[in-house]
Amino acid sequence: MEMAVFIVAGGISVFLSVVMVLARKPVTSAMSLVGVMFCLAVLFAIQSAHLIAILQILVYAGAIMVLFLFVIMLLNLREKEGMESHTKGYAQMFGGAMAFVVLVAAVGLTSMPSSPAVLASDRFGTTAEVGRLLFTRYILPFEITSVLLLAALVGAVALVKIRMR
């Protein structure tokens, strides 16, 4: 059962990712990405991480992708616009491949410290347990991530300000 759901959801997410990259209309790409987020949420759900599954939809599908669409609409991007970069396709492919290698290496070389006691218990994936771990064991990475996001936000605003001058 779990395997069947994984194959279906995983297959759809891979297919939609390819559609996202290859689609000529920005809106089609964005909607495919929404679909990918949904499939990822399903994958989290079958790992009994219900909170993460819901947050995946809430944050990515519900908020971030809406902002993507907002920008697409604001610039009123229709077909074939912004496609002149196709000439540099090889460089992008190379970059993508390198990023993939780095990602695989990062996943392969680091081992996530997981406590078997938590994994085995039926509290795994519940809101209380995720919250407890976030605010005790992983408090430092959690806070660093939030500072990083804040820095990115301030950086974006600063960049826009420079261009407006």
Binding site: H50, L51, I54, L55, I57, L58, A61, G62, V66
Partner: peptide
């Protein structure tokens, strides 16, 4: 278990 978040996720 996460009903309230589900409501926000779906209505978004």
């Amino acid at each position: 278990d996460v009903g309230l978040l589900y409501v926000f996720a779906i209505s978004s």
